[in-house]
């Protein structure tokens, strides 16, 4: 429904989502929330499990199709059909548009999701070759460049099952980077890692943040979110309860729920 008149300008870069609603398995996971990701900002999304933060992230590149609400990616509104009142599912109306949008938004998953039949290098070059039509050797150069960037120059020919979790996640980051996306989404990128492997992934992410990339990070790593983000948001039951710059967010939170959440994660 294009009802509610919003006078705000739609940004030409970054992502905006308005009044996003999503119902999954009988629960209202997202309850009409708005979010704005501006270019150059590093937005951390925190919240207890089940608060809807991963679902929100997945809505931003339409891996999950919101039941209602509008999404703009780099100023272009995505054509989505809302779910009907009678339970008809929401649907993507323009597949090409969504594919183009996804190619400009990189995603890093909690469980890496590397393709097991491809080497590290092939995982990284697959997108550029298939989507951007790069020639094999140009793509290989690009792949080596980004593998070096995540500190894995020596692992180009290794298959995922020969890599540690931390290495796999860094390959996954290189895979996202190789598409040269304008926004990077991280869905709990260190939650599936052994504690001793978390650091290497966070270091790579911090380096990316230092380059002024636009990043949205769903995470439980409080210290990392505090150090790296330019803005932090706290989600509770499908809505953003509080969002502010990290200093205020972590040291003088307004909402009592956020205070409780921060206290329990110290």
């Amino acid at each position: 429904m294009p009802g509610a008149p919003k006078v705000q300008q739609i940004p030409m870069h970054g992502i905006r989502a308005e009044r996003i609603e999503k119902r999954l398995g009988g629960n209202d996971v997202l309850r009409g929330m708005d979010i704005d990701v501006r270019p150059g900002e590093i937005l951390s999304i925190l919240g207890s499990s089940g608060s809807g933060k991963s679902t929100l992230l997945r809505c931003l590149n339409l891996l999950t199709i919101p039941d209602r609400g509008d999404i703009w990616i780099h100023g272009e509104k995505l054509a989505i059909r809302a779910a009907s009142q009678h339970g008809g599912p929401a649907a993507i109306l323009d597949q090409r548009q969504v594919r183009k949008a996804r190619a400009s938004v990189g995603m890093v998953f909690q469980s890496f999701n590397l393709w097991p039949h491809k080497t590290a290098l092939e995982n990284v070059t697959e997108g550029p070759v298939l989507i951007k039509g790069l020639r094999r050797n140009a793509a290989a150069d690009l792949g080596h460049h980004y593998l070096a960037k995540v500190g894995l120059s020596g692992k180009a020919d290794s298959y995922p099952h020969h890599l540690s979790g931390g290495q796999q996640q860094r390959v996954a980051i290189a895979r996202a980077l190789a598409m040269e996306p304008r926004v990077l989404l991280f869905d709990e990128p260190t939650s599936a890692l052994d504690p001793e492997l978390v650091g290497e992934v966070l270091r790579v992410m911090a380096a990316l943040a230092g380059e002024g990339r636009t990043m949205v990070i769903v995470t439980h790593e409080m210290a990392f979110a505090r150090e790296v983000s330019t803005r932090a948001a706290f989600m509770h039951r499908g809505l953003i309860e509080e969002e502010s710059p990290p200093r205020q967010f972590f040291f003088s939170p307004v909402s009592s729920r956020l205070r409780g959440f921060l206290a329990s994660h110290r």
Binding site: M107, F109, E126
Partner: peptide
């Protein structure tokens, strides 16, 4: 084939046939 493999492919912008 796990859903994660497919989602990773969707996320880089691959078409269903690809």
């Amino acid at each position: 084939v796990s859903n994660g493999m497919i989602e990773a492919a969707q996320a880089v912008g691959m078409s269903p046939l690809q």
